[in-house]
Amino acid sequence: MPTQHSRVTARLMMTPAVLLLLGWMLVPLGLTLYFSLLRYNLLMPGMEQWTGLDNYRYFLTDPAFLDALRNTLLLVGGVLVITITGGVLLALLLDQAFWGRGIVRLLMIAPFFIMPTVSALVWKNMFMNPVTGLLAHAAKVVGLEPFDFLAVAPLFSIILMVSWQWLPFATLILLTALQSLDSEQLEASEMDGANSLDRFIFIVLPHLARAITVVILIQTIFLLSIFAEILVTTNGGPGTASTNLTFQIYALSLLQFDVGGGAAGGVIAIILANIVAIFLMRMIGRNLDA
């Protein structure tokens, strides 16, 4: 039984972490909200003035915003479809008995540890370059025209790079979930004459549902903030073809020095991320009680 004394101590022990996170959340958040209501450009210091909701109106009615929103959804959705489908298939494969499982597992999770700038530049230059890239060589060998990935399909190319980085994450988590499946249940259904497709749809998939949800939510949080991959490959272009919301707000804030507009965009990004976060927190919270 904790004594009164230890309760006080416990609260003291928590204080630094709580205060730091409270400050880290409230100060920048408050400032972002405040700046979003100002006309404030770093190129015109001392000219700050109150503009009410103008920044939001400009940001939301800018055609670039709709492009960025569409690109953000395509990027998140595309990567999710590829990594979840691939992740389920790979997890099913890795769950089988075969020789060299340990090494195969190590090779498959490796992309997750590669820093985003390295992965993006390696893909951009050494694989997707239309003249000297490896994929161009491969295309020529089979008699096809080399494809200029980042010029013709910039967003799709970025989706491929990011999927490569996140596929191991989905695979690893789904594999962990798969390994906790009760094998007796599978054997029983086999005796009842269920074929492997039936077993997958009615037993394996429902068992994985929770893990799949967790993967979707966690990946979405990170994928909404994709930045480095775009910065080093396309710089958001051509035009706005590969600009997501994060990149658009970065460009507005630090390239055009429009603090007010960038802050208004920031508030919108926070609202979008929070919609996802609420669902994720519920999933995690439920597990906390168990």
Binding site: F35, S225, T246, I249, V259, A269, A273, V276
Partner: peptide, 15 residues
């Protein structure tokens, strides 16, 4: 605490 981790960094980039 976890919710602070889910704040998108670009939302607080300017400040």
């Amino acid at each position: 605490m976890l919710s602070t981790r889910m704040l998108p960094p670009v939302g607080v980039l300017v400040p």
